[in-house]
Design a protein around this nucleic acid. Structure first.
Lengths: 336, 336
DNA sequence: TTGTAGGCGTTATCAA
DNA sequence: TTGATAACGCCTACAA
């Protein structure tokens, strides 16, 4: 790669002059400017970020870490954040945390070493302490999808409990009383919150909690598939299933189809997240809408607030809402 | 952010010693090592990538640019490349090209300025010349999903023509003779190749090409939806539709459903790419499988070949294959 | 084993 | 308008 020195030598001017042409900071004589531009073209010179960088100089880039690059949920988040940031002239650098604590830490160090101005983090596998520590070191941080009591002005989350509670309330209103639950990995706070919402809704309706109806999955399609099969084998006669995210709902749906069980005629199915393809399922999946767009907008807003110290209003807690489609039926219509 | 200088001062040693501890290059006395490690912990010091000498110019990171971060196709590619690279200890830096030439150029410059060791490019909006130029400047390049004659050892592509030809051949074998086509944006080479495959298959079967049956989309769901509606309004009485990617097939499917047209009973539908959710459609989508996994493996392989000058075998042209599911019916079964 | 000095690719500053 | 110089955070010869 050509450097500013190469350009200056070819153009017969000083490096400072080249820098001035590139950045357009000061006036440069027309002749030298042309020479420099010609040299730049010939060498294919590109400005490197690895020059003098006083620590207070902005790079105009924000790092994002997600647990995984694949799957509709995170890719939609990435897409939203990236397009919002780019509208403000910011670059987005995406890195995968590979659903492991080790990788998420490494990704953070990597991005910080590359001088991103701030970090937007979807890192469920990192400890609170690690993130608190990071923030104390002065890194502008926005933490998504979790709530850390010590950093209330840096976390944006949805009310997971409310979301799943409203899902279960809806099922109950449709007459269901025996409702199975495919939970997310309970090592993650949002999975626990979603399970809690399930329990609360049952409590409110005076339905006893039956642990045989609950089974832990891993938020993936495959886990949804196997857990659904497991629940079926327990033969508890449930009429509805709440999958704690849409991925697992897809997996559950597949098992049900393979078993010849019709949704929603035999068993009702409800998901969480309202991923893009939920509506393409037949029957279209009833689910809880995760306000991805809003969350991403707030995240960017919050990041700019931290970067520029302006005092905009940020909503730290967003509300999910039920999306009624066709995968839930009234219990009375189910042929026992 | 703490620097190596801060650490050295707190530990009471030279910067060189800190560097030695961090990188483990030379032996350091146990006492000083402990002091340095303590200082690093206290300051939360993280190595910055800024400040590298030419000898140590490798950063262990590869940049990837995709047209967009959302959607199942590119996110699956990102996921595959990232996990392969990470297995080799490499970091992956992802950036969006936002489906625009300007942004894709900017992304390249951004990543190059950040010293990635190489670039894996999915940049359909960049000109051949730009990429040729880039490679001539010594940037290790792997170009995916296009074929540039001047750089045969840098491009990995699938045989798009073969893929769509086999899709159409299959439709013809099922008795269809009037087949509509929702093409991709014809400004992109792969879209043109897929359309060409459609034409070739018709030719081979002595079916006249009818331009009223072909309509250009934008590879998105929305475009698939509107183009499907447009084709329907033309009333050419086709019995099958070939959507040049699955996204558009999903959109087309939605229009058909809304119009009360049953797939495949009234109209057969076939896609291209075999995106993850294709099998969840009801009827499950018959489509052409894009060998994403293989392509990503070959891409990483090729990148390492360029980086380390080893002589592994790379397949530059991969073959798509038909995946028969339930969205295509024999024409004889269609009630006219 | 340790420290000093020089270099990397830039830009801000100051002098000409 | 232009150029020399110092600074940034790091690494590596070289010297002690």
């Amino acid at each position: 790669m050509a450097t500013i020195k190469d350009v200056s030598e070819l153009a017969g001017v000083s490096q400072a002059t080249v820098s001035r042409v590139v950045n357009g900071t000061t006036r440069v004589s027309h002749t030298k400017k042309l020479k420099v531009e010609k040299a730049i073209r010939e060498l294919g010179y590109k400005l490197s970020a690895f020059g003098r960088t006083p620590s207070n100089t902005r790079t105009g880039s924000i790092g994002i870490i997600v647990p995984e690059l694949g799957g509709p949920f995170y890719s939609e988040i990435l897409d939203n954040i990236e397009s919002t940031l780019s509208r403000y002239g910011y670059h987005t650098v995406v890195t995968s945390g590979q659903s492991s604590e080790h990788c998420q830490k490494e990704s953070i160090e990597f991005l910080l070493g590359r001088r991103v101005d701030g970090l937007i983090l979807l890192t469920p596998n990192l400890t609170d302490d690690y993130l608190i520590n990071l923030e104390n070191q002065g890194v502008p941080l926005v933490v998504l999808n979790r709530t850390i009591p010590e950093m209330p002005r840096s976390c944006i989350n949805i009310d997971n409990e409310l979301g799943s509670r409203s899902a279960i309330q809806y099922l109950i209103k449709q007459g269901h009383t025996s409702i199975a639950c495919i939970s997310g990995p309970l090592s993650e706070a949002d999975a626990r919150a979603r399970l809690l919402g399930y329990r609360r809704a049952l409590e409110e309706a005076d339905i006893a909690y039956d642990e045989m109806l609950v089974c832990e999955g891993g938020y993936t399609e495959t886990s949804g598939k196997t857990v659904m099969a497991k629940l079926l084998r327990r033969e508890r006669g449930f009429t509805a299933v709440f999958a704690c995210n849409d991925h697992m709902a897809f997996g559950a749906y597949e098992t049900l189809r393979e078993e010849g069980i019709s949704v929603p005629k035999d068993i009702s199915l409800i998901g969480f997240d309202n991923v893009n393809f939920a509506r393409y399922l037949t029957p279209a999946l009833t689910t809880v809408s995760f306000p991805i767009k809003e969350m991403c907008m707030e995240a960017v807003e919050l990041m700019f607030q931290k970067l520029n110290k302006n005092q905009t209003q940020v909503r730290y807690r967003l509300l999910p809402s039920l999306v009624v489609r066709d995968s839930v039926a009234e219990k009375s219509l189910i042929h026992a």
